[in-house]
Design a protein around this nucleic acid. Structure first.
Lengths: 210, 210
DNA sequence: ACAATGGTGTAATGATCATTACACCTTCGC
DNA sequence: GCGAAGGTGTAATGATCATTACACCATTGT
């Protein structure tokens, strides 16, 4: 029963609904966005939404968790490029900035925080899928550097936390408070990276670790 | 007209309503909290709420802006104590941590961010009354230190921004994502302060500036 | 005591949805 | 072509509020 073509059709419906739902949640917030509007934008029928997702709450969960991405890949790629620590850090900083300050990501964070008032678990799960893997990837990079003789003041865990604070938490907070798109600070980013490098006591001339 | 006693009565009503409204907004968020519940908790009548505040939106504004506080006083007091830079920074870090990680403050930030989805101005105004004065007070302190011969790498503005990032934005983000009350990290705070001191290149033996 | 000013309680009023029900239409295997 | 499985459109259904209206009570200055 339910041969493959049906699944494909359903899957197409599912993607269209999630895309429309994300747009409307982002524009108006969860409470104000209506299922009727979502269906209008996605095409199809309200009944299909209920068949696929059960109810509005579960639709939000699907939207958020299918959209949640971490900076893990980006960090591992930057570290694998074989550059010295200082330019690697600059590259990671730029990548994290581009990823976590993307207007869509900021919008998602807003929605998750709004929902965290009535559902604390929700926010925790979201950050566990986004911030945690990012921090762990950083930790790995720092640990490998230290193992290869690069001097750094502090444990990899602590330094990863500081890096996330400076390049994710703080910049996201600024984006939320001052409006998205007001922060494409190119040299400001380098200034921050240098701040981190100084605090971590990294030798600016350290070469690419084996 | 409207002699003093009337004003006092009104003022008492006003305070009671704002307190009840803050509690319910904090517990359930703006959209889910109902005016009926707020009136039940505050005592008095729904009509009074409309007389005093006009509508639900303006009640929220009153709640948020009467509750918004900055860390300005705390910073100026710490700086005026005449201690050397390093212990002063530790004291400020502790003070900012206590103030901005208070569960009530976190709850307020959540509400403001939730509302910022549909009303970006609202968030901006809130942060202008809380984060900005705090950052400016820090800036003043750093500028005074530099003027008095304390060596610090970076402009007062930049260093104040980094300090806020490490002790406000990041810790608030953690509180929101991992739940309030999971972060009374006493020695972690010192570790962060030392990180800042190292990045700013402050001489750990610098004495109290004139 | 006496109005009057203003708060109180309660009950409309009206909108706005989430959610459900239902009859019609499409598509796909046969 | 046929029939079924599943999608579509549309229209209830029911709840939940914000907001308004109104008749009653309390307090205050005279």
């Amino acid at each position: 029963m339910t041969p493959l073509p049906d699944d494909l059709r359903l899957d197409r419906r599912r993607k269209a609904i999630i895309a429309a739902a994300r747009e409307l949640f982002v524009e108006q917030g969860y409470e104000r966005a209506t299922l009727a509007d979502i269906v209008t934008r996605a095409g199809g029928s309200l009944a299909t939404v209920y068949k696929l997702f059960g109810n509005k709450d579960q639709l939000l969960e699907a939207v958020v968790f299918e959209s949640a991405a971490s900076g893990e890949a980006l960090i591992r790629e930057a570290a694998a490029a074989g550059l010295a620590p200082v330019p690697t850090l600059h590259r990671i900083a730029k990548g994290l900035h581009e990823h976590f300050l993307d207007p869509d990501v900021i919008a998602l964070v807003r929605i998750v925080i709004a929902r965290s008032i009535s559902d604390p678990q929700f926010a925790r799960q979201f950050f566990e899928r986004t911030a945690n893997p990012t921090r762990e990837a950083l930790e790995d990079v720092f640990a490998r550097w230290q193992a290869n003789g690069v001097a750094m003041d502090g444990t990899p865990g602590f330094l990863a936390e500081m890096f996330m604070g400076l390049f994710v938490s703080d910049l996201q907070t600024q984006a939320i408070s001052h409006g998205v798109g007001i922060s494409p600070l190119p040299d400001r980013l380098q200034e921050r990276t240098n701040f981190f490098i100084a605090a971590a006591g990294i030798n600016r001339l350290a070469e690419s670790p084996a």
